[in-house]
Each structure stands twice: as C-alpha cells, then as structure tokens.
C-alpha cells in the first residue's frame, strides 16, 4: 500500500481531472492547484497549456513552479527554455474575445452551495458583513469564460458547503440559466474535490452529488460536513487512492517543497 496523507489524495484527485492537450488557468494565490497542474504535466498530461496567474505558458521543465516563481535564479534559467511565454497583457486582451477560450480553470472558493454558486465576497449583510472575504478576483470571470471549472476545498465543513451562498460571486451550474444567457459553452463548475470526497452535478436537477468518497473518510462524515442533503449514488464508489508513481512524482518533482500544505489545515 502506498503511504500518503489526505492532502496528497486531494492533490492527486485534482490532477487526474486534467486531460492532456487542454489549456487552463489558475490564480497565483492557490498553491495546491498549481501543484496538481504540475503533477498532471509530469505524469499523464505533458501537453497541458497552463496560464499561471495569467502569464506562464508551458515552462516545459522538470522544476516545480513555485521555485520558478520565488527563486530569481530559477526564473532566469527557466525563461529562455520556456516553450512559450505569454505576458498577462495578452490574456487580459483576448479574454471573452473570439481568439481563445480556455478549457478549464481551477478555483478555491470560500463557500460553495448545492447549485454550484460560489461566494468569495461576504457572509451576512453585504454592507456590514459578519465576514468579509478577500473578493473574487477572477473566479467569477473564470466560471463564465472557461469551458468548465474544477474546484477544490482543502477542508470541507458546514461553513464551506452551504445550502445557498450568502452572496453569488460566481454563478452556479444551472444549464437553463446558461442557455438563457448565451453562456451554454461555459458549463460552470463540473468537479469539486475536498479532503473527504469528490463531487459533481450529474443529477437531473444539476444539484451537487457525491461522485466518490476518499478511502480515508466515510459517507457519514461527508454528509455531516455539508449544510444540505447530498445526493449519494448507490453503490457508492471509493476514490482511487494515489498510486506509488503519483506519490513519487509528487514528492520528488512536482512539489518537493510541500507547497501544497500551504493550503491545508488538518482536522
């Protein structure tokens, strides 16, 4: 049996959602997403085009991206070897334009509800909130401009998995709404990975459903850590645990500095 932690399961599960040849975007504030992208590229998806905070494409290197971003010498060495380079200027200019639509984005919202709406703005009254989150940056934009969106939530609980979000920073999955608004190309959130399970919206009314439960948790635990009743398939699949190869690449190449743990508060 492979030795791994819950955070590794989360990272690996996210990486497996990535398909080779796709293009994607993440913000720079979410280290686990970046690690999972790099893991995917170092395993099954070498030809992934990745806009890191909007500007790196395909460094094409065996170095973890965090080192490139924070170590100037590593950055200077990586720059000339990059397969392509795209300053942010271009992403901002063609966003919503005809030239390019990214296949997917990865986001980490403060709250998500059963309809796939996300909240990164406030809890409570908008003008004098109980909690003021940082704001959405581009998460709402990504939901309405990428073909689909992957979400991860490092610690699932009743505060992060809510029945209806207090404030919609990014719109949910509703296919009817997307058709009515001419956004049917952009499906919204398709997959959510947490420290307990994987979820999707594959029900008749596009409501959140458990897709598989991690072997380190139970379905009772998954339900207890959501403020709404989850759709649960029968039989209930168990998430495939990380393989030996995935763990080796993750530890030795994709994330030797364990940047993924920046995102994680153990239970």
């Amino acid at each position: 049996m492979t030795d791994y932690e819950v955070i590794d399961q989360l990272t690996v599960s996210l990486a497996r959602e990535v398909k080779n040849g796709e293009s994607c975007y993440t913000g720079i504030a979410i280290p686990l997403a970046v690690v999972s992208i790099q893991l995917a590229r170092m395993t099954h998806a070498p030809d992934l085009d990745f806009y890191y905070g909007g500007y790196w494409i395909q460094p094409d290197l065996d170095v973890d991206l965090f080192t490139i971003m924070t170590d100037l010498d590593a950055f200077k060495e990586a720059f000339p070897k990059a397969k392509g380079f795209n300053p942010l200027i271009q992403l901002y200019r063609y966003w919503e334009g005809p030239k390019h639509t990214l296949d997917f984005g990865i986001i980490r919202p403060a709250q998500i509800d059963q309809w796939g709406n996300i909240n990164n703005s406030v809890v409570g009254n908008y003008d004098q909130p109980k909690v003021r989150f940082p704001g959405g940056a581009a998460v709402g934009d990504i939901i309405n401009t990428c073909h689909h969106v992957l979400v991860y939530i490092p610690r699932q609980d009743k505060r992060t998995f809510v029945e209806n979000v207090d404030f919609i920073t990014g719109k949910g999955v509703s296919p009817e709404w997307r058709r009515e608004n001419g956004l049917e190309k952009y499906k919204g959130i398709t997959v959510i990975v947490t420290d307990l399970a994987i979820f999707d919206f594959q029900t008749k009314d596009s409501r959140m459903r458990v897709r598989s439960v991690h072997e380190s948790s139970t379905i009772e635990e998954v339900q207890e850590n959501a403020s709404f009743s989850l759709e649960i398939p029968d039989p209930l699949p168990i998430t495939k645990p990380p393989t030996e190869l995935e763990m080796k690449v993750l530890r030795e190449k994709a994330d030797p500095l364990e940047v993924r743990k920046f995102d994680y508060r153990p239970r």
Binding site: W95, E96, S121, G140, D141, F167, I168, N181, G182
Partner: peptide
C-alpha cells in the same frame, strides 16, 4: 459578459 449572474 463574465459578470452575468453575479450578485455584484
């Protein structure tokens, strides 16, 4: 267009 559906 990306703001469609947002409570902003």
């Amino acid at each position: 267009r990306s703001l469609l559906g947002s409570d902003l």
